[in-house]
Nucleic acid binder design. Structure first.
Lengths: 250, 250
DNA sequence: CAATACTGACTGACCAGTCAGTCATTTTCA
DNA sequence: TGAAAATGACTGACTGGTCAGTCAGTATTG
């Protein structure tokens, strides 16, 4: 097994520096831009000195990320050309390298910024006193609205597609998205069991069973909806009926 | 949206002929080999004239497919180099082109030969009189043994990964694997409902709900098992408990 | 007028697909 | 039967296009 990760694979080539895994802002490339690392500096318009540049910088960065998102989603990691990303972002190719160390760094940042924020947003609003069923309904609704019906579904598929080839990406996604997501689901399940609404206690052990139809929905929409449309919301509701023991009916 | 499919993308290039979709043996490249199309000619050793050549030919073809499988699974479509496939198969690069029209043809053939045969094998043995539960158990067991625990799981993930970029592949997979698989599941469900073992009649409408945990298992094993092992068989059994209304217990 | 941001032509590696030539097997025919 | 001819299988150096990443130079800004 040769198993070389995809990058640009410096075969026998010259220097072409490499680094273990992700980008971890703080890399220290030759020149580093103001807004390059973190701190989006949320001064919208104010008068902060040098805020003008910072704002424009943040804007450019965002444009690159957005463009990258579309390109990567459409073609996958390897087949995406940074020239295209640059063109789509209305920027010269070199500019990308002012904001990101290399192609992979852009890729990871992209995934990060597309999925992480939504994980917290989708978690239950903790509404004590509400029925577990209601909380699950809300969960499903949010999931469909925020993921299945947005380009975030594409990003999720992208992670599934490329994850196996990017251990660092898979690990990150597991930690930041899967663990947190399943954790939230498990809490909901326990809540439902405690309230006597859910009788299948195994679900607390395998929250994946609750998430599975959502995964199915995301994948189906991406690959097969053209051949056989699937009403994700309805399917997920039906799944809730099963979890909550609502037999029969439609 | 430019949306060009990955291939080698003859950008503005010269002639470089292309064709609509798959390979469809019968393409008619310049020269065509004996065993190139179908009919493996199962004469093991016998005396059929010219069987020697045919046998060796089939062997080579198989070696190429096997090598391709490993490479594509490890790197994905675009990042796989045919030079590597050739080396792994113990063959010169040119030889690949004697058996397959191009990279994509090899890729498709690969997926085809890895998944299609197993679909029929995994379908229920129609054992009339048996409880639906028993049939489902058997189904799950076969699925785990034949897919989750084999490299076929990798192939399945490969389809999920590349399907979006290969409409022809997605369509083929939908027709030959998904439709047939879900069809078999739906039959089982109806059987279970008819026997009064399954009460959730929605399942007949959404057999995807039954398949979803299997999909989850395949994906989890590929991406996250390193971080959090998942006992697929146990999870799928737990899922059956839910479908069959076996409340509580573990 | 620095300093900083940006540009895009350029380099060097890379790789799908080709094809002229070599090797192996089978057929033909004396 | 044995040798030459014909057919088929295989090879790998080569071509032409591609693309990540660089950097000298230009623009913009404070």
């Amino acid at each position: 097994m040769t198993m070389r990760d995809p990058k640009t694979a410096p075969r026998g080539g010259p220097a072409r520096q490499r680094r273990g895994a992700a980008t971890e802002p703080g890399a220290k490339p030759r020149r580093r831009k103001s807004g390059a690392a973190a701190e989006p500096d949320e001064s919208g318009e104010g008068g902060q000195p040098s805020s003008r540049r910072a704002a424009k910088s943040a804007e450019r960065r965002a444009a690159i990320v957005a463009a990258g998102l579309q390109e990567f989603v459409a073609r996958g990691y390897t087949a995406t050309r940074l020239d295209d990303v640059a063109r789509r972002a209305g920027v010269a190719k070199g500019t990308i390298y002012l904001y990101f160390k290399d192609k992979e760094a852009l890729f990871q940042e992209l995934i990060r910024s597309a999925l992480v924020p939504v994980v917290s947003r989708i978690a239950p609003q903790s509404g004590e006193g509400q029925s577990a069923r209601a909380l699950f309904e809300q969960f499903v609704q949010t999931f469909v609205r925020e993921i299945v019906e947005t380009e975030r579904a594409d990003v999720l598929r992208l992670v599934l597609a490329e994850g196996a080839r990017f251990p660092a990406l898979a690990e990150f996604h597991y930690r930041e998205v899967v663990l947190r997501g399943l954790g939230a689901i498990e809490q909901l399940i326990r809540y439902g069991i405690a309230r006597g609404e859910i009788h299948h206690t195994v679900l607390a052990k395998f929250p994946q069973l609750v998430a599975a139809p959502a995964l199915m929905a995301v994948i189906w929409q991406g690959l097969f909806s053209k051949h056989a449309p699937l009403d994700a919301a309805e399917m997920l509701r039906a799944h809730l009926d099963i979890i909550f023991d609502q037999r029969g009916a439609t």
